[in-house]
Structures are given as C-alpha cells and as structure tokens.
Amino acid sequence: MTVTDEARQALDLQRTVDITTTGRRSGQPRRIETWRYRAAGRYWLTGSPGSRDWYANVVANPRFTLHLKNLDLEVRGRAVTDPDERARVLGEIVPALDWAGSLESWLDGSPLVEIEFD
C-alpha cells in the first residue's frame, strides 16, 4: 500500500481533521480543527462563508500538515478561486449539508482549498 492509498483510506474514514499551517505573518505553526469534504473524487477544505486565518495561511504558504488519527501527512493546498470550479465543487458539497444555507452565499464567501498529495 502506498502512502497515498493509506492517506485516502484514512481520509475516507475521518471527516473532522486537524491542520497545521504556517502563519502568514508570524511564520509560526498554527493548528486548528476543521472538516474535510470529498467532491469530484478529490478532498477539500472549506467552511461556511467568512474569512478564515487558516485559508489566508494556506494562500501565503501552501504546504501544511494534515493530521489524521494515526497519520500526519505533509500536503499542499490549492486555493480555488475560479468561479466555475468553485461552483462545481461547492455545488456537490453544500446541498449535502442541511445546516449550510444557500449555495450562493458559499460561492460568494467561503474558502475552498483542494488537498493535494505530493
């Protein structure tokens, strides 16, 4: 089993994850809990509309650590700003969340990062 296969299996089982990003101003590690999503056959980090420090950190320094229960992965985050791609991905994620509100609000103001494996 490759690391990527192990990572995918772990990610499929765990929605709540921790990530450690590098602070965009401080340069210090910043760890937070967040949710991962699966859409279009890939893995994503997003959240309800609003600004997020973790997102700004990933934009400034795309490399971060994804912490799963038994596995820490060094990954890269790809911030998604293309409106068509955002619509495709969030259009798959948001309708499945009964608490999410409108897709339009997520398209206008939610961070969206693809988790990329090296």
Rank of each mutant, 00 (worst) to 15 (best):
V89R: 04
L97M: 12
D108G: 12
G101S: 04
P29Q: 00
M1R: 10
V113A: 01
Y55V: 06
P111F: 14
E33Q: 15
D12A: 14
Y55S: 05
S26P: 13
L107Y: 07
P29W: 06
G50D: 08
E104I: 02
E6D: 13
F117N: 09
L112A: 01
E92R: 01
V17I: 15
T81K: 12
P29Y: 05
L71T: 14
D82R: 08
T20K: 02
R31T: 15
R15Q: 13
Q28E: 09
G50F: 14
D98G: 13
Y43A: 05
N61M: 06
V80E: 09
R52V: 04
T2E: 05
S48L: 09
T81A: 14
A87G: 11
V113C: 08
A40V: 10
A79H: 10
R63S: 04
A87H: 03
N70K: 07
D5N: 10
H67L: 08
S51D: 13
G50M: 10
A87P: 15
S51L: 11
P111M: 11
R88Q: 15
V59M: 08
E92K: 02
A100N: 09
D98A: 12
V58F: 11
T65N: 00
L112T: 01
R52N: 02
E6T: 14
G91L: 01
H67R: 03
L73M: 12
S105W: 02
E85M: 04
L11F: 15
S110V: 02
T46V: 07
V94E: 07
Q14D: 00
D53H: 15
Q14G: 00
V3A: 14
S26W: 02
G50S: 03
G91A: 05
A100W: 03
V89S: 07
P49F: 12
G41A: 00
L112N: 07
Q28N: 07
A79E: 04
W106Q: 05
P62E: 03
R25E: 10
P83V: 11
G77N: 01
D18G: 07
T16N: 06
Y37L: 01
I115N: 01
A39K: 02
R25D: 11
R86Y: 01
R78D: 00
E85W: 00
T22D: 04
R8A: 06
R88H: 10
P111A: 07
W35K: 05
